[in-house]
């Protein structure tokens, strides 16, 4: 099942409409950004659970993607699966950061205190957003790392099972079981917990 359309904020201007003078690689990149910015940002947000960190993570992912694609040439660019490729970069950036952060004491625990809302959104929107996704997003953090990452890639970033496996560097069967167990745990948590 392909569940899509990402929410479009009002007055949101597509970047490709303002990129009229970019060169080929830049035009390709801007299109890539327009198509996948929400998937990348959403996955980043569910990974690190903080709005500001997610912005950092997503921005760095795209900058790295641009630098990597610089040497690719049009043929390779047209052949790759862009979303899975972006997610692989995102995961690498995230792991590198987690490793760096682990070497120094973290500024604050990364557990239940989930900073979900864009600080700039208006209050009504935040409230609405909290009702629909806040509880679930918090439950997501109670899964094991592998289950959470597999589920975020599969459903939030909307990758296929084989792509999820490729990004996480695990066999498909393993990815499938992480997703299955993760979903089961989430169901149990929603039934037994504050969601009722």
């Amino acid at each position: 099942m392909r569940v899509q359309p990402f929410r479009r904020a009002r007055g949101y201007q597509s970047v490709s409409t303002i990129a009229e003078t970019a060169d080929d690689a830049d035009r390709w990149f801007i299109e890539l950004y327009d198509q996948h910015r929400s998937a990348v940002f959403s996955a980043a947000l569910r990974l690190c659970a903080r709005w500001a960190d997610a912005e950092d993570l997503a921005a760095e992912t795209f900058v790295r993607a641009y630098r990597a694609a610089g040497s690719y040439g049009p043929e390779r660019r047209s052949q790759m699966r862009p979303r899975a490729w972006l997610m692989t970069i995102l995961w690498n950036v995230w792991r590198n950061r987690a490793r760096t952060a682990a070497r120094k004491p973290p500024p604050a625990p990364l557990t239940d205190d989930v900073d979900l809302a864009d600080p700039r959104q208006d209050v009504a929107e935040i409230a609405e957003h909290h009702e629909t996704s806040g509880a679930l997003a918090t439950l997501l953090n109670q899964l094991s790392t592998m289950q959470r990452e597999a589920i975020v890639l599969r459903y939030v970033a909307d990758l296929s099972l084989s792509e999820v496996a490729a990004v996480l560097g695990i066999p498909e069967g393993t990815a499938k079981s992480h997703i299955f167990r993760g979903l089961a745990k989430l169901r149990a948590l929603t039934r037994g917990g504050s969601y009722a």
Binding site: V3, Q4, F6, Y12, Y33, E55, H129, T132, S133, Y155
Partner: peptide, 23 residues
């Protein structure tokens, strides 16, 4: 369905994210 709820966790990227990427 839980899968749909998870898909709904996707949000639009902030409008100024692009400014941190392009010059």
């Amino acid at each position: 369905p839980l899968e749909q709820q998870l898909a709904d966790l996707a949000v639009d990227a902030p409008a100024d994210l692009i400014d941190r990427i392009v010059a």
